[in-house]
Design a protein around this nucleic acid. Sequence first.
DNA 1: ATCATTTGACCGGC
DNA 2: GCCGGTCAAATGAT
Length: 333
Amino acid sequence: MGDWDHKNLINELVQGKDLARQLQISLNAPSSSQETREFLIQKIVDSFEKALSAINWNTGSPPLSGSPRSEDSEKDLKDQEHNASRKRKAMPRWTKQIRFKPGLGVEGPLDDGYSWRKYGQKDILGAKYPRGYYRCTHRNVQGCLATKQVQKSDEDPYVLEITYRGKHTCTQASNVNGASPSGTRENNKEPNPNLGAQQQNVQQSQELLMSLRAGLRILTQNLDTPAQPSFPPFYVPSNTKPENQAFLTPMIENNFAQSFNYPSYMSPATSGTTYFSISDPDGVNTCGANPTSGSQINDIISAANSPTVGSSFPLDQFQLDQNFTFDNTRFFS
DNA sequence: ATCATTTGACCGGC
DNA sequence: GCCGGTCAAATGAT
């Protein structure tokens, strides 16, 4: 078993354990739907399948399709393939909110380890900010139908609401070695292109965990005070075009890599719902950790454009927290 | 040259 | 007909 397989195996096992914990909590949460639970179960099965494949154990079925309890998933996938309209309702869908504030150091680009390609942007009725639409970069190559929507929160300019739809069905095969094969131009922005994607995720998650831990205290302090919309929440890197500098954006991305456990906090607006810290919220994505697309920054720029101009902050300094909802259950991390 | 983003057009559901 | 979501040609970035 190669080094990467070993790490991948550990990742999958840890992820499976965390997902099982989420399921346990979900089972005790009245607000959690059956769909949520089945989705978590499917993710657990996926993790085991991937773990087995990491040790070259032939499960006899491709990931995401062979488990006995995956009827819904299989149906979803078929819907995705054959029925675009029904698909949309059937596809698993979950929302994550990311809050960020200037003032804390977050080293390096934050990303979910998956590559996304923007395919649209719309002004949404009643929303202050446009919604960006993204799909998996590997859609054309592998038929991966995972998508996400990114929208800046009306209430708090420091919050991005990110809705994921569908599961990644692409595999790691195309990018398992981090360095892209000829032809594909994956992100050259990765901190260490020689690392495998999974390893990068671990590395990033560790950095992020530290950042989040460091930031949580201050964030908690600020929770009771409304964000100040009078100045831009993001700083635009120096190489950003001047016309975009009015639309400040964080160097953060939707998904924060892997496991981190630190105290949840309660939001007054969401008391009564279920809280727990989650690890690898992207565990729902079975698309192998992809080298991050360089589009992440621009994603947020367009998704979080703020019509304000003014003071700026170092790009690498943010305060972060996120919460995550799936169906009626809200998760905080 | 190739791939990503932008943005108006288009489509389907309600 | 409105609106959210997607397509695809034009444009931009590397």
